Simulated assay, not measured.
Amino acid sequence: MNHAQWKTRRTRQMFGEKAEPSQAYTNAGDAMALGQTVHDRRKELGLSQKDAAERADMMQPQISTIEQASAEPTLAFLRRLAKALEARLSIDLELGRGLHLRLHSLDRGQACAGGNARRSCAA
């Protein structure tokens, strides 16, 4: 979504029109939620990006790219990342609501949501 599209969408919303988010807007939100979840879990474990990357058999820039919401990772990538972050990955597909990703901490049963789900971490 470019700036003009965003501005048009915002104007419509201000006048009470219902403006459905574009797929690009939804994808960006998903990437941001995932990136924040990965960052939070990595920090919780006291890991640097380099440490997390080594655990996942990746390079540090790959972790950075995910945390900055600049990539759409594959399922295999997410599995390796979850293992490196000592978490269990669950993916839910809901008709009409999209994709929901969750990393479940293995040490305390904590679930941190990523994807379309609102960001939440509950012990």
Results as ranks from 00 to 15, higher is better:
Thr11Val: 08
Ala82Gly: 14
Arg119Pro: 10
Gln5Phe: 08
Arg102Trp: 02
Leu106Ile: 15
Ala19His: 00
Ala69Leu: 09
Leu103Ile: 06
Asp107Ala: 13
His104Trp: 11
His104Cys: 12
Met58Leu: 14
Met14Gln: 14
Leu34Lys: 01
Gln68Val: 05
Thr8Ser: 12
Leu81Ala: 02
Ala84Thr: 11
Gly96Ala: 03
His100Tyr: 04
Glu17Cys: 03
Asp92Arg: 12
Arg55Met: 10
Ile66Gly: 02
Gln13Trp: 00
Ser48Pro: 04
Gly16Trp: 09
Gln110Arg: 03
Leu95Ala: 09
Met58His: 01
His3Met: 05
Leu81Gln: 07
Ser90Thr: 15
Ser22Gly: 00
Gly29Asp: 03
Glu54Tyr: 00
Gln13Pro: 00
Thr26Lys: 14
Ala56Asp: 06
Ala123Tyr: 13
Ser22Tyr: 14
Tyr25Glu: 07
Thr8Met: 15
Tyr25His: 05
Tyr25Cys: 02
Ala19Lys: 09
Ile63Glu: 11
Leu101Glu: 06
Ser64Gln: 09
Leu75Val: 10
Ala76Glu: 15
Asn27Glu: 11
Arg12Ala: 12
Gly16Ser: 12
Ala33Gly: 00
His104Phe: 13
Leu106Asn: 15
Arg12Trp: 14
Glu72Asp: 15
Gly29Tyr: 05
Leu47Gly: 02
Ala84Ile: 12
Gln68Met: 07
Leu93Pro: 02
Met1Trp: 12
Leu93Asp: 00
Leu89Val: 12
Ala82Ile: 10
His3Tyr: 08
Arg118Met: 00
Lys18Arg: 03
Arg55Glu: 06
Ala28Cys: 10
Arg118Pro: 07
Asp40Lys: 11
Ala19Thr: 01
Glu67Arg: 03
Thr65Leu: 06
Gln49Ser: 01
His39Tyr: 05
Met32Asn: 03
Pro21Lys: 07
Gln60Glu: 07
Gln110Asp: 08
Trp6Gly: 00
Lys50Gly: 01
Ala84Arg: 11
Ala31Tyr: 11
Glu72Val: 07
Leu85Ser: 13
Arg42Val: 08
Asp92Thr: 13
Pro61His: 08
Ile66Ala: 09
Thr37Ile: 07
Ala31Pro: 06
Ile91Val: 13
Arg108Thr: 13
Ala33Asn: 08
Lys18His: 01
Asp107Val: 07
Lys18Asp: 08
His100Glu: 11
Gly16Pro: 13
